[in-house]
Design a binder for these strands. Structure first.
Length: 932
DNA sequence: GGCTCTACCTAG
DNA sequence: TGAGCTAGGTAGAGCC
């Protein structure tokens, strides 16, 4: 009977020291965990040699015992348009590890052969499991239907010396030896099992615990679905009585650890979650087990589905863990990537995203709590439990994995690689597959020297064009943008590694980008990357189509994640081409893409400003001047000018002597989109996005819009802020709240007077700040900045570095690189960097705040940048001088009624990245402090 | 006050 | 945040 399962992980095992067997781990539709063994797949790579290839082939076979066979094949080289394929050698080895072993030495045969030219090896650094997945057109989270007989992995591996000890603990529900398999289309996700865990250590003197000496005293679990009726479970490293049922007291730490591994394997999770467990808990457990074993304790730390033990590897600062057959998912980096927050402590994240409180036990009192027998002990246990719960809730409630699962499916990379890494592995997987199908070989990864050289060169890569904004407050601004600009440029102009002219000269005309270089047109050779992009684009529209027709909520979510994943992949190829560590790096290509982009946006501006110039609105139609002919008094003439644009967007200012309704402005928007799109090569398209009733343009990459978007038969409005201090995390909340209010008053109510009045009040309140009374006010004065490097690598002092070093002095623990450090500026003399202080410390010690700094450096400059558009001067804001009536900005009432007050509630899965003033919960809270 | 440099964060 | 890219604004600090 065929077995259907979703591929979670893959690797290989060597049988009899001679035959590699692929192992595919997965979860079946029936809920069973599966290991599927696939024999008979062989490792190989390519060699470009010169001279008599038959002789070279013989020499290779004679020289290397690792080589199983050598064949002559016809292949294109990786980069450049080529008229014909070249003969190359495909070298098959016995074992996967033979490939890296001989790839260097094989090149030395060139001397032996006294051959001309330069020999090269290709595809020598592809992991065997990936080679298999790529060649068989499989991939991570793909559904597979496998035929074959059930086997006992223990017996199967008995012949193998390397695998025998491990497979004793083989942990899959079923194993089969595949005789055949095929990919299955299935838009559901297997019933995955999620487990998260968290450890508590007893540090010495409240400092950082060290695995050599500091014991693990508790391990908490959270399960989805339940484990034997438990949603959570807390293991204790000591006996205890009178504790509820979700607690498992053990004799000692060793017994607790053994129970941990037993429960772990019995539960058999697919997803192993935690918060920062990749960097902390897993390495700690690994080292602690090693320390205990060294003391003669017996611990069997199995976590892998194949019976492998817990382990980790450090690459510099980065830690990687692997649990065979499972996927290790650390919620911390996922939350970081998905949400722009001021801090990423579990406490801050839970509060912000789950609206859940983390419980707390002060580090210095942990010992006291642990040895307590009453309330404190129970608190400690609940605290541990809560942390495991929160980690799992983050992943499940926020659906953090959906996107990654879809990315795995669309790109063909394994889920673990995608969760751990960036775009590189996905792009390379797609490239390898497509290059293979088109008989083109791929380069190995460049070594560090080559990457460094390329890195120097990358200054030769120019990016997008940013148009100078028409600064000030504008009414009726159309927002148009190019849908997937760079991918569509690559498709439209056939830009690819395989079409760039580097050697062979094509017959006929070529495509010449503004940046230089030449590319062959698609009828000469259709580019590989453009083909991949085309497939992705088609896949996206098919997915969207299916979304419209499905009524199944789960399927809808999977499809939505899929179309998002496709979009991400579409946009990854350009970046890869200019990435110094890419297998395929080509600045001619990368520059061609951006240069077409730049000339495109400039052309667009030219067309709108000088070719179209005006649109005539007449009986529900938007006409060009030519089409309109003679004008009548009923016509509305709209004058167009591009007010701003950045890379792929254009803001068009619509001016008329008469009032314009949103519907009328839309007519113009649709017409512009049609005209400009028609002038572009397929599939490039300028889309009409939305209308800004008012737009405040401050500088390049800094603006605020009062946006209207069509929503079933009506309009939905919101404020969108880009680049300004309200969306920047290195400004305090008081700044963003104040600025948001100012923007709201100016953009929606058009009332500059009230904005000025508001700022005055805020300034006054800060001036008269009484920190003893308003200790919580400090909250809104906290700035945060990321610690980006080691102390010694900073050339200048930095406020957050000052604070980080103070923290190290006080607690003994230096915050790690990548942490966002909160700080406030305290009163005193001297440089401001020296007056940065930890907010908690300030609160505890009642240290006065530098009120002047907050007024002069935090509130006024950003506010002034906005208000100076209306002629308001800074001096009028700081003092209670009476400066009313100087400016009289009379706002026209918007002709479309604003949507009624109740705004959509902030949902948990909504990214706070995009600021919406009305959702700013800060406003209501702050109003008692600053806004009366 | 203007200029240069470092540092950070954001737009796209 | 040790692996996609560039463009660009603003601040602090040191220098003239």
């Amino acid at each position: 009977m065929p077995m259907d399962f979703q591929i979670l992980d893959a690797d290989y095992e060597v049988i009899n020291d001679s035959n590699p067997v692929i192992r595919l781990f997965g979860r079946g539709a029936d809920g069973k965990s599966v290991c599927c063994f696939v024999p008979d797949f062989e490792p190989y790579f390519y060699l470009k040699a010169s001279g008599d290839l038959h002789a070279v082939a013989r020499l290779i076979k004679d020289t290397f015992a690792q080589v199983k066979k050598v064949e002559i094949v016809e292949k294109f080289e990786p980069i450049g348009y080529q008229k014909t394929k070249k003969e190359m050698l495909r070298v098959t080895t016995h074992l996967p590890r033979d490939v890296p072993e001989i790839r260097g030495d094989i090149l030395k045969l060139q001397e032996v052969m006294r051959a001309e030219g330069k020999w090269e090896v290709y595809e020598t650094d592809i992991l065997f499991r990936n080679r298999f997945l790529i060649d068989k057109n499989l991939g991570g989270m793909v559904w597979l239907s496998a035929e074959g007989d059930p086997i006992d992995p223990v017996k199967y591996f008995r012949r193998s010396t390397s695998g025998s000890s491990r497979c004793e603990n083989f942990a899959c529900d079923s194993s089969i030896l595949a005789s055949g398999f095929k990919k299955v289309e299935n838009f559901t996700i297997a019933p995955l099992k999620y487990l998260s865990f968290d450890i508590e250590c007893l540090p010495l003197d409240g400092g950082m615990p060290s695995p050599d000496v500091s014991p693990i005293v508790m391990i908490s679990f959270s399960f989805e679905p339940e484990y034997r009726g438990h949603k959570t479970l807390v293991l204790l490293a000591r006996p205890a009585e009178g504790i509820n049922s979700d607690v498992l007291p053990c004799k000692d730490e060793t017994e607790m650890l053994n129970r941990f591994f037993e429960i772990f394997c019995e539960y058999d999770p697919d997803i192993v979650a935690g918060y920062n467990h990749q960097d902390f808990d897993i390495p700690y457990i690994t080292d602690r087990v090693r320390a205990l074993v060294a003391q003669g304790k017996a611990i069997n730390p199995v976590v892998g589905r194949d019976g492998s033990k817990i382990s980790y590897r450090r690459f510099g600062l980065l830690t990687r863990t692997e649990m065979k057959g499972r996927v290790v998912v650390d919620a911390l980096p996922l939350v970081r990537r998905a949400f722009s927050l001021k801090q990423y402590t579990l406490r801050a994240v839970s509060k912000e995203l789950l609206n859940r409180e983390k419980l707390d036990v002060p580090p210095l009192e942990m010992e006291e709590y642990w040895f307590d027998t009453g309330e404190k002990f129970r608190k400690f246990v609940d605290y541990a439990r809560r942390d495991a719960e929160l980690a799992l809730e983050l992943i499940l409630n926020l659906r953090l994995l959906d996107k990654y699962i879809a990315l795995a499916q669309v790109s063909g990379s394994l889920l673990q690689e995608i969760v751990d890494g960036g775009q590189t592995s996905m792009v390379e997987t797609l490239l390898l597959r497509e290059f293979g199908l088109r008989d083109r070989v791929l380069l190995p990864k460049p070594d560090d020297g080559v990457s460094a050289e390329r890195y120097e060169m990358s200054s030769d890569l120019k990016g997008g064009e940013v148009l100078e904004p028409k600064k000030g407050l504008l009414e009726n601004v159309l927002l148009l943008d190019y849908k997937s600009l760079y991918p569509t440029i690559m498709m439209a102009h056939n830009l690819c590694y395989s079409t760039v002219v580097t050697g062979d000269t094509p017959d006929g005309a070529t495509i010449k980008p503004p940046s230089g270089g030449e590319f062959v047109p698609p009828d000469v050779y259709k580019g590989i990357v453009p083909s991949i992009l085309e497939d992705l684009l088609n896949q996206r529209s098919l997915t969207k189509q299916r979304m419209r027709s499905t009524s199944d909520e789960n399927e809808y979510r999977v499809l939505d994640a899929t179309q998002l994943a496709v979009k991400i992949l579409l946009n990854s190829f350009y970046g890869y081409s200019g990435y110094a560590r890419a297998r395929l790096y080509n600045l001619t290509l990368a520059n061609a893409v951006t240069s077409f982009g730049r000339s495109n946006i400039l052309n667009t501006r030219e067309i709108i400003n000088n070719t179209i110039r005006k649109i005539v609105l007449r009986s529900g139609a938007a006409l060009l001047l030519d089409e309109a002919g003679e004008l009548s008094p009923h016509d509305k003439v709209v004058e167009l000018s591009v007010a701003y644009g950045d890379t792929d967007s254009v803001f068009v200012h619509c001016q008329s002597t008469m009032d314009l309704s949103l519907e009328e402005v839309s007519l113009v928007g649709n017409r512009l989109s049609d005209i400009v799109s028609a002038s572009l090569p397929d599939p490039m398209e300028l889309e009409f996005e939305s209308i800004a009733k008012r737009a405040l343009l401050i500088a390049k990459k800094r603006y605020a819009l009062w946006l209207f978007e069509p929503r079933n038969s009506g309009w939905e409005d919101k404020i969108k802020v880009k680049g300004m201090e309200t969306v920047r995390r290195d400004w305090c909340e008081l700044t963003s709240v104040t600025l948001n209010r100012v923007l709201e008053l100016v953009l929606i109510e058009g009332n500059v007077d009230r904005a000025v009045e508001h700022v005055r009040k805020v300034v006054n309140n800060v001036r008269n700040l009484d920190p003893a009374k308003d200790s919580e006010i400090i909250e809104s004065l906290i700035l945060t900045r990321t610690l980006t490097r080691k102390s010694e690598s900073y050339k200048n002092k930095q406020p957050h570095l000052t604070v980080a070093e103070k923290l190290k002095e006080r607690t003994g623990v230096m915050p790690s690189i990548g942490t966002r450090i909160p700080f406030v500026i305290t009163a005193g003399k001297g440089l401001f960097v020296d007056r940065a202080e930890d907010p908690d410390y300030v609160r505890e010690h009642n240290i006065p705040i530098d009120v002047d700094y907050y007024i002069k450096k935090q509130i006024l400059p950003p506010v002034e940048r906005i208000l100076e558009v209306f002629g308001v001067k800074l001096s009028s804001l700081d003092f209670d001088s009476k400066q009313k009536g100087l400016f009289d900005f009379e706002a026209k009432k918007p002709e479309v009624k604003k949507q009624e007050k109740p705004r959509p509630k902030k949902e948990n899965n909504e990214k706070p990245k995009e600021q919406n003033l009305f959702k700013e919960n800060g406003r209501a809270e702050q109003s008692s402090l600053f806004d009366f």
